[in-house]
Amino acid sequence: MLEIRNLHARVDDREILKGINLVVNPGEVHSIMGPNGSGKSTLAQVLAGRETYVVTEGEVLLDGDNILEIEPEERACRGIFMAFQYPVEIPGVANTYFLRMALNSIRKYNGLKELKPVEFVKYVKEKMKIIRTSDDLLKRSVNEGFSGGEKKRNEIFQMALLEPKLCVLDETDSGLDIDALKLVADGVNAMRSPERAFIIITHYQRLLNYVVPDFVHVLVDGKLVKSGGKELALELEEKGYSWVENSSQSAA
């Protein structure tokens, strides 16, 4: 589904990603872990299409098409979803309106009929059975005045609503208490399917107790230096990032 080949990216004059290679197949859950400043969020932003990050080398193929030249909105239509580390507040724009615009853009792109407000409300109610959220959050302006946990839950709810094929979670777990973390994990687990893949970017192993990954990769200084199964996360938790940082330096 997704193939990242020798991806290099910079922001301003600083090179952050220095040759990432990764293959993600449908149904797989990959976790990318790494210390602060290793390039985790940059990778997420590059996949979503943020223009402040400039790709200098490499390719990102989604179902065989290089998506790097494609606008962020079209990437979303093709099934890429990034849950933001810091979801943006948009005062004056009702969450339901925002979600309906988003869903209808994707439906339109895929040749489906756009949902009318009444139909949309019905659709939302269905999704609310899977991902617990409150009516109140839907009525309010997008993320405005939401607590940290509410913002992250709103991201997961959006993900459930838009039904992407590739979900990129950018440190969705950071800053959450254990209850909020479980809610996020329940949402992700409910959405796991043979057609859908996840890239879970995290600093901590904690989330992976609830969402069990198929693969764990360690990102250090813009490169994936180590890959393994779910046990790698536990090993990292135990030994700390300095363990891979040192070993990658000695390898280099």
């Binding site: 909105e73 990437r75 239509c77 979803f81 948009i90 925002f98 615009m101 853009s105 959006q158």
Partner: peptide
């Protein structure tokens, strides 16, 4: 707000529509 525009685009809302939504807000 550039970050709000990107947020909307990452949710499939086209740039011109996203701008109009922000201005209307």
């Amino acid at each position: 707000d550039e970050s709000a525009l990107f947020y909307m685009r990452s949710r499939a809302i086209p740039l011109d529509k996203a701008k109009a939504i922000l201005l209307l807000a």
